[in-house]
Amino acid sequence: MQKHFTEIEAVGCGEQPQTRRGQERRLALLLSANDLFLEHGYDAVSLDDIVNHAGGSKTSIYKYFGNKEGLFTAICDYRRELFFKDICACYNSERDDLRSYLTQTLINFYLHLKKPENVAFIRLIFEQTQKNPELALYIHEKGAHFIQLTIAKALEQSHLQGKLSCPQPLSSAMMYFGILRDYEWRILMGLEINQPEQEVTKYIEYCVDHFLKGHQKV
């Protein structure tokens, strides 16, 4: 996990660490800020709190992240990469079966979404993006829109190969992710999902089958 963390590009006004010590210092600040934001909320945590938790000085925060907002954005990048890296790989028509690809993507999305730490951070993001439209746009473009584009490319590729009819792949990708919308909202609102995972998988398979049926060539 730490290797993945240090590979994330610095954002905002900060600079990328050039030494191992600098990478370790940046990593410690990110880990500490992530834990403190989840535990206490963004507004309740000061830079002094982060430094006291991680060690070092505020100079390192200004150097690597620019400010508190830059630090939070870097954490969003880190958590976004962790969230999406195992959910949706690029589609390869020579290797992947489209139905299996679409089904497994939604199953992965659901399983990641259920993790309590992911739920807590998504709620924190919602809170902060209400105050920061630029952050909201950034997270949407790098998160939801990015994964929609990944699915859209798979659908477009299948369309061009004549495997299905999908003249508006991005619109279809947005429709596709709507399959999990009810589960997503229930999880984020803290409502219990009584269905076992096998039933959720059956639901996903059913919806993907009908999604593909709606895109069959006439």
Rank of each mutant, 00 (worst) to 15 (best):
G22Q: 08
G22P: 06
G22M: 09
G22A: 08
E24C: 11
R25K: 13
R26L: 05
R26N: 05
L27Q: 08
S32F: 00
L36S: 10
L38D: 04
G41T: 08
G41N: 08
Y42V: 02
V45C: 00
D48A: 12
D48E: 10
D49H: 03
I50E: 02
I50S: 00
N52P: 06
N52F: 02
N52C: 07
H53T: 14
G55Q: 03
T59A: 12
T59Q: 12
S60L: 12
K63T: 11
E69N: 08
G70T: 07
L71I: 08
L71F: 04
L71W: 04
A74E: 11
I75Y: 04
I75K: 01
D77H: 14
R79E: 10
R79L: 15
R80V: 05
E81W: 13
L82D: 04
F83A: 04
K85C: 14
C88I: 06
C88T: 02
Y91T: 09
S93K: 05
E94S: 14
D97L: 08
L98W: 00
R99Y: 01
Y101D: 03
N108I: 05
N108G: 06
Y110L: 06
N118V: 03
N118G: 02
I122M: 11
I122D: 00
I122N: 05
Q128T: 06
Q130K: 14
Q130S: 13
K131N: 11
N132Y: 02
P133K: 04
E134V: 10
A136F: 08
A136E: 13
Y138H: 12
I139K: 02
E141C: 14
E141D: 14
K142Y: 09
K142V: 06
A144L: 15
A144H: 11
I147H: 13
A154P: 02
L155S: 09
E156M: 10
Q157M: 11
Q161H: 04
Q161L: 11
K163C: 11
